[in-house]
């Protein structure tokens, strides 16, 4: 008999509607999903479908207009809950701090002693391959390195839920694949639940345990696909026959939605 998989994050009837100069926009919903504790969950969808809004709602950065989000059984309020880390697509490193100070930004305001902070810093530097750059400033780093700094800054907080909003969107294809490998390693090493928002089908198919496909705006979940990958995996699975099938299935679902999103008069 299967033991029930514990639910980590749960969304029930979540909608997000916002007012702007152009009037009311129904950006998202209704959405009902459950993220299992420790799983790697990816969300793909056509551009403008509200993927990032979904992440903002789960992170409590934007309140849902209706519905409820719970994290570890508790409804979230209007501040980012403890144990949640967020990595954005844009470079969010602080240009006035060096890499080490960037990484310990959140740690330094926690009641931790120096040795513990140093330990976590060294671990994060090691994990993200930044050992030689601890004293460098973000402007001296490449885009991929800066994103590593942001990921490291999130990891040292030891989040139980990591939200990634197209974290590799600004990187080139090779770097993306390698960063994907690193993300898998981090996911296994930390045991955290990961929610990855992406527009790249191959990225979702390669990294995630489950991939949710969203519709054009207002974004709803069309289907959730189980990839069935073993926990120990890396970017080499792109040559597995299942990878092609999963990507093809994702594209079939997305194609119609993307065309709808691009159709004149829809924006």
């Amino acid at each position: 008999m299967d033991t029930p998989i514990p639910i980590h994050v749960s969304l029930r009837g979540v909608n997000r509607v916002y007012e702007s100069k152009l009037g009311r926009t129904h950006a998202l919903g209704p959405i009902d999903i459950d993220l299992r504790r420790g799983e790697f969950f990816a969300v793909v969808g056509p551009s403008g479908c509200g993927k990032s809004t979904l992440l903002d709602v789960i992170a409590a950065l934007a309140p849902p207009s209706s519905g409820e989000v719970t994290f570890e059984g508790q409804p979230i309020g209007n501040t980012v809950p403890n144990g949640v880390g967020v990595v954005f697509q844009e470079n969010a490193s602080f240009p006035w701090l060096n890499v080490a100070d960037n990484i310990t930004f959140g740690l330094r305001r926690q009641p931790l002693d120096k040795a513990e902070i140093e330990k976590r810093l060294q671990y994060a530097l090691q994990l993200m391959g930044l050992q030689d750059f601890a004293q460098a400033y973000p402007s001296q780093l490449s885009g991929g390195m800066r994103q590593r700094v942001c990921i490291a800054r999130t990891l040292v907080m030891q989040p139980r839920l990591i939200l990634l909003d197209e974290p590799f969107g600004a990187l080139d294809q090779q770097t993306r694949l390698l960063m994907g490998d690193e993300l898998l390693r981090i996911w296994r090493a930390t045991g955290a639940t990961v929610l990855l928002i992406t527009h790249a089908l191959d990225e979702a198919a390669m990294l995630a345990d489950r991939v949710a496909v969203m519709s054009a705006r207002p974004g709803r979940i069309l289907e959730v696909i189980e990839t069935g990958w073993p926990r120990e995996r890396d970017s080499q699975i792109v040559s597995a026959p299942e990878f092609g099938q999963i990507t093809a299935r994702l594209w079939t679902l997305l194609r119609a939605q993307s065309m709808q999103a691009l159709a004149p008069g829809s924006v």
Binding site: A59, T79, V80, G85, F88, N91, F94, F105, G106, R109
Partner: peptide
């Protein structure tokens, strides 16, 4: 100030005064 740097302090649970002072 890039919007993402305005969002980041919230992720680290900084209050308004700390946000001004540290970011």
């Amino acid at each position: 100030l890039p919007p993402v740097l305005a969002k980041t302090p919230r992720v680290f649970q900084l209050g308004p005064v700390e946000t001004i002072r540290r970011v």
